[in-house]
Amino acid sequence: MSGAEHALRRISAVRGVRGAMLVSAPDGLVVSESSMEDVDGRAIAALAASLAGRLRRAAGGAGLGRPTVIQLRGETGTLLAVPAGEELLVVAVGDRETNLGLARLELLEAARGIA
């Protein structure tokens, strides 16, 4: 098992996380994924990369530098995305019960290992 796959499995093991994946940031395509339940992995990759790209431009305009963690919270779940270098994003989707603090740490750890 590659380092990336191992990292994705660790993220998926966090309570409430429905799946995790590695995404090509410029293309919005799946690079690698782990146990995505009931969600179209291609949709996650495309939408997370698009949102991350727009937020990168907005954060730059606000003088905040590059985003390090992005967290989109909805009524029934959360999307987490962490850039891993210039080209990749580590992304996870969780339900309402997700331990977001732990998931965030695992994503950051995965991104450090991959970048």
């Binding site: 995404v23 293309d27 919005g28 291609r42 495309a46 939408l47 990369a49 698009s50």
Partner: peptide, 9 residues
Amino acid sequence: ESSVGIVQL
């Protein structure tokens, strides 16, 4: 302003 992923989706 778009991406392969968004267009395919």
